[in-house]
Design a protein around this nucleic acid. Sequence first.
RNA 1: GGGCUCGUAGUGAAGUGGUUAUCACGCCUCCCUGUCACGGAGGAGAUCGCCGGUUCGAACCCGGUCGAGCCCGCCA
Length: 436
Amino acid sequence: MRTLAKDLEKHVGKTITIEGWLHKKRLLGGLNFINVRDRSGLTQVLVQDKNEIEKLRGLQIGSVLSVKGELISDKRAPGGAEIHDPEIEVLVPVTDEPPIEIDKPLQHKSENLDTLFEHRVVGLRNLQERAVFDVQATICSSLRSFFEGREFTEIHTPKFLAEATEGGAEVFTLDYFGKTATLAQSPQFYKQMMVGAFERVYEIAPVYRAEPSATSRHMTEYTSIDAELGFIDLEDLEQLLSDLLGRVVDGVWDKHEIQLKKWNATKPLLPPKIPVLSLEEIHEKYSKATGENSVGEKDLRPDEERWICDYAKKNLKSEAVFVSEWPADEMKFYHKKNDKDPKLADRIDLLFRGVEITTGSMRENKYEIVLKQLKELAKGDPTDPGFAPLLSAMKYGMPPHGGFGMGLERLTQKIVGLSNVKEATLFPRDINRLTP
RNA sequence: GGGCUCGUAGUGAAGUGGUUAUCACGCCUCCCUGUCACGGAGGAGAUCGCCGGUUCGAACCCGGUCGAGCCCGCCA
């Protein structure tokens, strides 16, 4: 019967067996300490018997062990208890030195990220590396519980698509039994169509972008958190996102506070309602403060995104900020124009700690208008099998609806405080990397 | 797609023209009875990314090439 590191306190005084990976050796001569890692943490073992310590000679960190012995309470031991007089069985000996250190924090300098990713398989055994993905898993479970609590249905949409796309981002094309298929750059059309069936849907799944972007915030494959819901307006969407981000941050800090401290992460300042600033308002503030003139530009510069987040943290007590009032002539065909000012689109971007993590919008739900916008804005053919199903959903009754897409890795990156989105990605894919 | 920067033991770094290429971590051997970034002594490990050029002499200067990073554009 195997005991896990997290359950040690229940077994003090008993003989137990632990199984896991050799994580650290500290050989002092007569007294020798080894740490064994399992899924729940580390267990310290005190080895004094020369024959037992001899079994570990030449064994590298990562060797798989089974250790049987008496669990003794001792306040000098990390965790308050340790195994004494062990009988060690080496299940899998490892003799090759690991290519990357796994028993102390790794450096994350940007120049050396390549090494980190090249040896990801072994590097993730490092507890501090792994913590990033424990946090990411909690982000996902918090999201699922948030969405379930609000009666969203989780859906799974296809990633192979016919050629027509929403425009904007570049798409990958591939041979599909003689036809050309594309990889989904977002579940946009599908989640909208499913509002007609479920009213509220969400999906957490990979999307693919063929943009030749080599930056610290772009990848060719990333995980998109997509949600779409009917019978709402733009303010409802803002409040939903405010609640969601707050819930995720609370969930993560409740569960991983100790690990986050090791990353020097601080809990983000987030008010119950994230402040909203218009695009033009931000341009004006930025231009006035920096002397760089961005007034009239149809998007935010990366530097502007960083600047306005600093501004919001200092002046609005929020490390997230919504950007509203985007120009309608730059919008996607499925976006909805503002009722009062048709020069504007009902779109909001969510900036968090200097980077855009979300784009959300109200969608045009009237069949004739979507049809018109498709032709004019996307130069799309309504009979194209890529567009026809969406139009069909509109034709047969779609309520006012809206939704958003959020980058899971960017969110993880900003919560942990990493400088490159790839550090928050298990096996990153970018224009230069397809392995491991 | 444009611009800038960087490739030196397994890992991270120092070395800006002079012949045995330096340091730290890791690894190996020995010593060490409370370690927890253990400590001490010794040792192994590098055709200085690759190709060519300049030079009496190149890790260092020049050209090319391959690889990587950052910024911009674009996006989540």
